[in-house]
Design a binder for these strands. Structure first.
Length: 288
DNA sequence: ACCATTTGACCACA
DNA sequence: TGTGGTCAAATGGT
């Protein structure tokens, strides 16, 4: 018997999802405004905290609804809420959900890899990540990333549990609605606790040199770099500068945004957008 | 020196 | 007992 949750998810109209995305985007914008007002003493921290909660609620609501979008896969097989009894007994009470993407996703959280395993009947290793702030904040969110056998250019990321750390705020800004991107809105969260930029970022945008990078003038990526990004991903060639393990593609470099030593401060949105704006839909790929 | 990743060992469950 | 998940010492990069 189909669960009510699953039935409801399958019936959610696309425009409802879009509307939730839009609402979250507005909440994010409002939070920025409030933050400015808070600095000037016109708004209490409580108000800003409320907006944070609103934005977080949007994120939580969207997680089961939007998880299929980037992978373009059926809900039933790849993005269902795993509410069945058959789940890891070590994570009995943890909710899980899965995303299928064309590359390991940057989800705005900081992860630390704590292991990898060969999985039976799987060609590629499965990598295990926990929240970087597990010991600082007691955040028990984890994820597992594995390259998919049937289509080895795709990666499956299984999330287990929700973030309870301060990093949760960051995820509120992941995948803002398209209008914000198209209109070139800048969301500058002005936090120094954001994850440092992943080295792979520069391999996607060769025109941006790390040594020449000036955070003050890179409010968003120029269109030509976005084009390069898309076309570089569109090919199935090995990613530039991506490390190769003995088992093939090494996902560890792409799934963490934890402290690398790059002394630069790209805004989080810059690269969060990239993963959610580009759907890597085959029909849209340039034919070369 | 510090921190993240790697990797073999260990543990829990079916 | 096999398998998947986690731990922790070793290793490597900055």
């Amino acid at each position: 018997m189909e669960s009510r949750v699953a039935r409801n998810l399958s019936l959610v109209p696309e425009n409802v999802t879009e509307e939730i995305f839009r609402g979250r985007g507005y909440a994010a914008q409002l939070q920025i405004v409030l933050r400015e007002l808070t600095r000037s003493g016109q708004v209490t921290a409580t108000a800003e905290d409320l907006v944070t909660k609103i934005s977080r609620s949007f994120t939580e609501a969207l997680s089961p609804l939007s998880c299929c979008e980037s992978g373009k896969v059926p809900v039933s097989s790849d993005c269902q809420l795993d509410l069945s009894k058959k789940r890891s007994t070590r994570r009995k009470m943890q909710e899980t959900w899965t995303r299928i993407t064309d590359m390991p996703i940057e989800d705005g959280y900081t992860w630390r890899k704590y292991g990898q395993k060969e999985i039976q009947n799987a060609k590629h290793l499965r990598s295990y990540f926990r929240c970087t702030y597990r010991f600082d904040s007691g955040c028990e969110a984890t994820k597992q990333v594995q390259r998919i056998e049937a289509n080895s250019t795709k990666f499956q990321t299984k999330y287990i549990g929700h973030h309870t750390c301060q990093d949760a705020l960051k995820s509120s800004f992941v995948a803002m609605d398209d209008s914000i991107v198209e209109e070139g809105y800048l969301l500058n969260f002005e936090t120094k606790t954001l994850p440092k930029q992943d080295p792979l970022f520069f391999s996607f945008f060769p025109s941006i040199k790390q040594s020449e990078y000036n955070p003050s003038c890179s409010e968003y990526l120029p269109p030509q770099d976005l084009t390069k990004f898309k076309s570089s991903v569109a090919t199935t060639e090995p990613l530039p500068s991506a490390s190769q393990s003995s088992h093939g593609y090494d996902i560890s470099d792409h799934t963490t945004s934890s402290s690398s030593s790059f002394d630069m401060d790209l805004e989080l949105m810059d690269y969060v957008y990239l993963n959610d704006v580009f759907l890597f839909n085959d029909e849209e790929l340039p034919k070369t």
